[in-house]
Design a protein around this nucleic acid. Structure first.
Lengths: 220, 220
DNA sequence: CGTAGTCTTGAGTATCCTCAACGAGGGTGG
DNA sequence: CCACCCTCGTTGAGGATACTCAAGACTACG
């Protein structure tokens, strides 16, 4: 039914105690497609991506999967509000490292230290920003526009050196579930963008953005 | 080009000083389609809808409008993160009342009182929740599914008495820009839902939801 | 009562989805 | 080391859906 090809494995955990936020934290390492959390234990923790990447997804009633967010190094996650759908977060690449904080401890720390509280607000605002950006991408009309906007978003969120090259850690299936279009359409859009010179492939997951302007405008 | 039929008028302002959050606040009243704020002055204030309704929209590069959020009584807005697109908030109905707080004053109040800080976090989480919900609606496939999900969302967010009746304060054009589909498609979807008995109209903007289950599942 | 905005419906076209097939990599086990 | 399997990615054909253009009815408001 759904675009969920999984090699699902367990996680390899390495514990540590690092003083950020002045709160106990644990560093965890995950295999490819390993679950980081599920809606069952969502309320307890708060996470920070160190390296690798992860996907935040929701399972719809009919069994389809929707990716709600890609988590890249530097991103925080774990405050997804109250929703009705089943959801979770999985690592995308092998060796994804995540710092985990206790939500309760963080709350009390925030109540003690206004600076931490302010930092928390800032972090939540980042998540809002991502959500808004995604909303506008999904609001685009054609598949080519969506894919082009996606590439630009990923480039802007990545911290790569080359300002034109972006590495897509996720599969085409993930992109499809993120943009709410079919895998085939993602593939066709990328081919089309490549054919007309807007992008250039240096491997299936490495893209050079050629004409940022024409990409942004949707090419038409 | 865009779905922006406007009667645009100025605002009728009534000032007051109400102690909520322990912070100076102003109550403002707006005409239909009157701007509440624009991206130029976004960073200064923080708002709370008292009555009526408003739309948070973004203008895309090509001139199209996307509605990013509907603001209903009880909703807070004004923390929309940093984005690149031009955006703003307008009242939808005549006489929409909004409480406005100074962002800076609120920040200092939060730094002084952990309880206020906590409350602020809660409010931001609500906004996140709305954003997430919208994301899943947009991720739906068919127009009928989107419209049905929209009706349910509006019902759940409204505080109306009758648990089956929902009043749509916004125009079909607004709904179209919210769901990223054309006005005609919105109209056709509503007609179809009505035809097959999932909803019943008691006026163009007043809908009775008949079979919540079949609505949620998208009818197919 | 007229006008501007709103809502609905129709016809034709473009886009995307589904089903299907095939090729390319990566990992595992013989 | 090679064969195999599984996932991933791409491409094609046909059908379903939504968009655009167009016209007409309804509504609110001055």
């Amino acid at each position: 039914l759904s675009n969920v090809p999984n090699t699902a494995l367990g996680k390899a955990a390495v514990s540590a105690s690092i003083p950020s936020f002045g709160v106990q934290s644990t560093i965890l390492t995950y295999e490819r497609s390993a679950p980081i959390y599920h809606d069952t234990d969502s309320a307890d923790h708060f996470y920070h991506v160190q390296s690798g990447a992860a996907r935040n997804y929701a399972l719809l009633d009919d069994g389809r999967r929707r990716i709600v967010d890609f988590l890249l190094p530097g991103d925080f996650f774990g405050f997804d509000g109250r929703h009705h759908h089943s959801f979770g977060v999985e690592a995308i690449v092998r060796g994804t490292r995540v710092t985990r904080y206790s939500r309760r401890a963080l709350e009390t720390a925030a109540n003690r230290d206004p600076h931490i509280a302010s930092e928390l607000r800032e972090i939540t605002l980042d998540a809002m920003s991502r959500s808004q950006a995604r909303l506008l991408i999904l609001g685009r009309v054609t598949a080519i526009e969506k894919v082009a906007a996606f590439l630009i978003e990923m480039k802007e969120r990545s911290s790569d050196g080359d300002p034109q090259v972006v590495t897509l850690l996720m599969s085409r299936y993930d992109i499809a579930d993120y943009l709410a279009i079919s895998v085939e359409t993602v593939s066709r859009a990328l081919t089309e963008l490549s054919r007309c010179g807007a992008i250039e492939f240096a491997g299936k997951h490495c893209v050079r953005l050629q004409h940022r302007g024409s990409l942004a405008s949707g090419l038409h």
